[in-house]
Amino acid sequence: MVVVEDSHPQSSANTGHVPLETDRDPNGLIHTIAVVGSIILVVITFPISIFLCFKIVQEYERAVIFRLGRLRSGGPRGPGLFFILPCIDDYTNVDLRTVSFDVPPQEVMSKDSVTLHVDAVVYYRVNSPQMAINNVSNYR
């Protein structure tokens, strides 16, 4: 007879964890009703709605999808073909290429009172499309 002991006391059934309201159903009843209604709408208007449901994202882009204002799990979609539900899904394309733009010429006064003309170029690239959309109001 082999006896196996649990070395992690927190993993036992008597941890005292009380389920919160968010643990039960993170989406809610309204979310489920809206998704089912949107699916019914797609089925009823099938030939026309097929052009609204499938979206294509290029190799250098990613799509961040929101369903009823909440970020969909699974991260950004792309590249390629993906499916959205009309009326409840909203998506934003994020360009992953390096973007450059010119800063207008500036005049700067140095310590020894010499006027300098400074011209600049700014380069940026998005590494995380989800963070760019959610954490910055206008990342561009």
Rank of each mutant, 00 (worst) to 15 (best):
C53D: 07
V99T: 12
S73N: 15
S110A: 15
Q106K: 06
D23V: 04
V118G: 02
L71S: 09
D95H: 05
D89E: 07
V36R: 09
T92I: 11
Y123S: 14
V126D: 02
G75L: 12
F66G: 01
I40G: 13
A120H: 01
V94Q: 05
I44Q: 10
R140V: 01
V43C: 15
S137R: 07
T15E: 11
K55N: 09
D6R: 12
N14P: 06
E5D: 11
N27R: 13
V114N: 14
A13S: 12
V108A: 02
G37M: 11
L81P: 05
R77W: 06
Y123T: 14
E21R: 07
I56H: 07
P19E: 08
V2E: 10
R125L: 09
V122G: 04
S100R: 14
K111P: 13
S38H: 00
D23R: 09
A63N: 08
L116F: 14
P9A: 08
Q10L: 07
S137E: 00
V18L: 07
T32N: 14
V94I: 08
S11A: 14
F101L: 12
L96M: 12
A34N: 05
Q106L: 05
V4P: 09
D119G: 02
T45I: 10
P86T: 05
S12F: 06
H31G: 11
V57G: 04
C53Q: 00
H17R: 15
V42P: 07
Q58R: 09
I56Q: 10
Y124L: 05
S12D: 08
A120L: 11
